[in-house]
Design a protein around this nucleic acid. Structure first.
Length: 480
RNA sequence: GGCCACGUGGCGGAGUGGUUACGCAGCGGUCUGCAAAACCGUUUACUCCGGUUCAAUUCCGGACGUGGCCUCCA
């Protein structure tokens, strides 16, 4: 099966050829751990999880290395730590914030059916590699020291701007801010900066006497180098990272190691909006994964439904996150899970499902293929395909719990609290149904309907049908 | 202001230089005590204006619209 992927750098879709088929290497920019991840953050996590699964399928589980970093050194983390734990020394407070947020992040993405990456490196554990890269850049004339900062010189890299497709002139023309006094060129960016008292700090590179901390971009160059090498296969992330983050990573890595390329394929997922608007805290439409799982648009949504809703749109397209689409996704999965309950999964994943995925992760086409399998009654293959794609196939856990009010996520809440009506036991339901069947046989429609309504009030839906011999049979299911 | 992406039927959303996407909703039907469910069938499309072409939703140019990026915000 030929895998084709769209590359942001060359702007074309082309066959994927790994540098080393025995070790296919992918790096995806992970979270900065200072707060709950929002649904926009969930998109790359889900998209690249699907790619990870596909690569494992093609090259073998042991032949794919997926690295997704955790950024645990950042101004926002510092600010959050100072705000939430004012009594603690800053470094202790920072550790509390990053550890707690990392735990929340893992709980959320686990619920979304995402496999853990092969390696989840932390920025603070790769300071030595960052310093090494910075020293190489200084030695190579690509970086300079000024006022205890180390800056990358964009003028030293003729390729700078090729990923984002913009020239330095354009960027200078569009720059709207004052250039910091320690910069030789307005577009130069910080590799290392001095720490303020109390802030996390490490010995500085470049002969700088005072301690400092890394700039934003260099961590990914360091961690991808350490775990994947100077050059690797796939680098992914949100499209908002193309500039400046990925452009700068590319420049750092290529200049430090004298390489033409950093990653062979650059992949970027499209942006996410909520109900047609940009997601922002000021608009009040900021949606975290945790809120979706606890209570959003009237329900606590199972992770499978969130995952399915996300895959309904091709990863490069913009996606509008709406309650309607989520409801539709849930409904589809609900029906499928009901139909494949108790079905033994096929041993292979159907080519019908793999083929669209292999075409630059065409998940919409993949879902259409699943619909076709469903329609054709190929349920064993359906189950195998869904499991392959990271879906639990577990009907009970797919139930969405109604919530009466929109719950706000608090920092303290790490437990997903759900409220639901107490479901009657199977024996009770069967008892009701046999009573109703008797009432129907006696044409006592009033009693029959009363029982049906009563069960409906308890969240049990009755489905009347006939068996092979034409006798009336009533089955039931829990309301979704 | 600069750069980039996107604009498909009631809704969501693929794809293609000429031939059914798919799903949801709707409509019709089968079934049913009624309803639901299930199953069968089915209507509606490619933002606008030019150009290339035998032929454009698909390629090119422009307009309009939406969104993204342009800062040591991630």
């Amino acid at each position: 099966m030929e895998l084709r992927l769209y590359d942001t750098l060359s702007k074309e879709k082309r066959p994927f050829v790994p540098l080393d088929p025995v070790n296919v290497r992918m790096y995806v920019c992970g979270p900065t751990v200072y707060d709950f991840a929002h649904i926009g953050n969930a998109r790359p996590v889900i998209v690249f999880d699907v790619l990870f699964r596909l690569l494992r399928h093609v090259y073998g589980d042991k032949h794919v290395t997926y690295v997704r970093n955790i950024t645990d050194v950042d101004d926002k983390i510092n600010a959050r730590a100072a705000r939430d734990f004012p009594a603690l020394p800053l470094n202790d407070a920072i550790r509390k914030v990053t550890e707690e947020t990392e735990r929340q992040f893992h709980a959320d993405v686990d619920a979304l059916g995402c496999l853990r990456p092969t390696v989840e490196p932390r920025a603070t554990e790769h300071i030595a590699e960052m310093r090494a890269i910075i020293e190489k850049l200084i030695a190579g004339g690509h970086a300079y020291v000024e006022q205890d900062h180390v800056l990358f010189s964009v003028a030293s890299d003729p390729r700078y701007g090729t990923l984002a497709r913009r020239s330095l002139d354009e960027m200078m023309a569009g720059a709207r801010i004052d250039v910091a006094p320690y910069k030789r060129d307005g577009m130069d960016f910080v590799l290392w900066k001095p720490s303020k008292p109390g802030e996390p700090s490490w010995p500085s590179p470049g002969g700088i006497k005072v301690e400092g901390r890394p700039g934003w971009h260099v961590e990914c160059s360091a961690m991808s180098w350490k775990h994947l090498g100077e050059q690797f296969d796939i680098h992914g992330g949100g499209i908002d990272l193309v500039f400046p983050h990925h452009e700068n990573e590319l420049a750092q890595t290529c200049c430090a190691f004298h390489r033409d390329r950093m990653a062979n394929v650059w992949m970027h997922n499209g942006f996410l909006q909520v109900e047609g608007e940009k997601m922002s805290k000021s608009l009040g439409n900021f949606v975290t994964i945790r809120e979706l799982r606890e209570g959003w648009a009237g329900y606590a949504w199972p992770g499978d439904a969130l995952r399915f809703a996300m895959l309904g749109t091709h990863y490069r397209q913009p996606i509008d996150w709406t309650a309607k689409a989520l409801d539709e996704a849930h409904k589809t999965l609900w029906r499928w899970y009901g139909d494949i309950e108790g079905v033994q999964a096929a041993s292979n994943v159907a080519d019908d499902v793999l083929a669209p995925l292999a075409d630059d992760l065409n998940t919409s086409g993949m879902i259409a293929a699943l619909h076709a399998l469903h329609k054709a009654g190929r349920l064993a293959e359906m189950r195998a395909a869904l499991a392959f794609l990271g879906f639990s196939c577990d009907l009970p856990s797919l139930q969405r719990k109604p919530v009466t009010a929109e719950l706000r996520t608090s920092e303290a809440s790490d437990q997903v609290q759900m409220q639901g009506t107490a479901a009657p036991s199977k024996q009770q339901i069967e008892q009701f149904i046999s009573e109703r069947t008797a009432a129907r046989a006696a044409k006592n429609w009033k009693e029959s309907d009363r029982i049906r309504d009563e069960l409906a009030a308890m969240g049990v839906i009755l489905k009347d049908g006939k068996d092979a011999e034409g006798k009336p049979v009533t089955t039931w299911e829990v309301a979704r």
